[in-house]
Computed example of a mutant assay.
Amino acid sequence: MRVRPLIAVLILSSTAVFLVAAPAEARRRGDLGGDDVTLSDTLERYLAYRSWKAHADPLVDYAYARLCNVDSQHLESDIDGECAPPNGTVVIPGCGEDEPVMPLWRRTRVAVGSPWSQWEMRIGWVCPDDLLPQLTQSDFRQLTIKPTVTHRQPGEGGTVLVNKGIIGWVDPEERTFRTSLLGFDIDVVTWPVEYTWDFGDGQALTTTSPGGPYPNRDVEHVYEDVGTFTVTLTTVWEGRYRVDEDPDHEWRTIDGTALTTTTLDPFEVTELRSHLVG
């Protein structure tokens, strides 16, 4: 799901064409922390409406209502009565199987008991997806993903011989999270898709295979010199997320990846020598 900007509204008349353009994008920090994320004005204004619903301000009022399809310099609503006979064009977006959401209006007053201002349109016709947050790569990488469990043969304490192979593998298990983003509760599922093994001797292997114990040799490496070496594994994760308030309960692909690193214990690579005995 990609958050789209506020839908433009076009009003035609015999003397002029009025184009109400989508507002510029704003910035807001997400609940997951990290870098700022860029939001469209549509979502930014919808978040303000959600905040008002949770903590009603007596000096502010919101309402959903149609946008009058009239020949006028000013956008109007039918909140205070029926619109005048249609004489222009209002573009309503196509949302697939979803119904578009009516425009959201706001009015204010300076004090309780004071007259209300005229209704102001805060969001035009939009699709329901436009009112949901997008989990970005920056958000994804703020999650604490437990690294893959990593194994090698010979195992701990086993002798690693020069010019002989070691075999590595991982447990490619999914990770699940329950978290929130911009006040929306979400589920996240992530899984490993690529592995880069750094064998500590200047050689590395990148593969999509999790490997396996012998006789699986998808992840195998031969050391040509003796010494102490440390294997480091970098795992690439992909994921998907679902927003609780999405009426379709749709799983959405995260646009980007996350990384984890696992460092195995150092081990000695030795040379097997034969000795004559009397």
Rank of each mutant, 00 (worst) to 15 (best):
E174Q: 13
D187Y: 07
D198Q: 10
T176Q: 14
L143H: 10
T176Y: 10
C127D: 06
T144N: 13
R152C: 07
P213M: 04
G183M: 06
D201H: 11
F199L: 10
E156L: 12
G200Q: 08
P192W: 04
Q203Y: 10
L205K: 14
T150R: 01
Y214L: 14
D139R: 03
R175N: 08
D171S: 13
Q153M: 13
F140M: 08
D130V: 02
T159R: 14
F184Y: 15
G183A: 10
T148N: 12
L135I: 12
I167Y: 14
G158C: 09
T159E: 15
L143Q: 10
V160F: 06
D129V: 12
Q142V: 03
E194I: 01
T179C: 09
T144G: 06
F199V: 04
F140D: 06
I186P: 05
W191T: 07
H151D: 03
E194C: 07
D129M: 09
F199K: 06
E174P: 15
W197F: 09
L143P: 11
V189I: 14
P213E: 06
M121D: 02
A204E: 14
L182Q: 06
T206Q: 11
W191L: 03
L131M: 07
L131K: 04
P215G: 08
T208Y: 00
G124H: 06
E194H: 07
I123W: 03
F184E: 10
T159P: 00
T179Q: 08
Q142Y: 01
T207S: 13
D139W: 01
S209D: 13
D130H: 05
G168V: 01
S180W: 00
D129C: 01
G202K: 09
I186N: 02
T179P: 07
L132C: 01
V162T: 13
T148F: 00
W197C: 07
T150V: 15
D185P: 01
F184G: 01
T176G: 00
P154G: 09
G183W: 09
G124Q: 05
P213H: 05
W169D: 05
E156N: 11
E174D: 15
G183I: 05
V162A: 13
S209C: 00
N163C: 00
P172M: 09
T206S: 15
L161Q: 13
M121T: 03
T144R: 15
G158W: 10
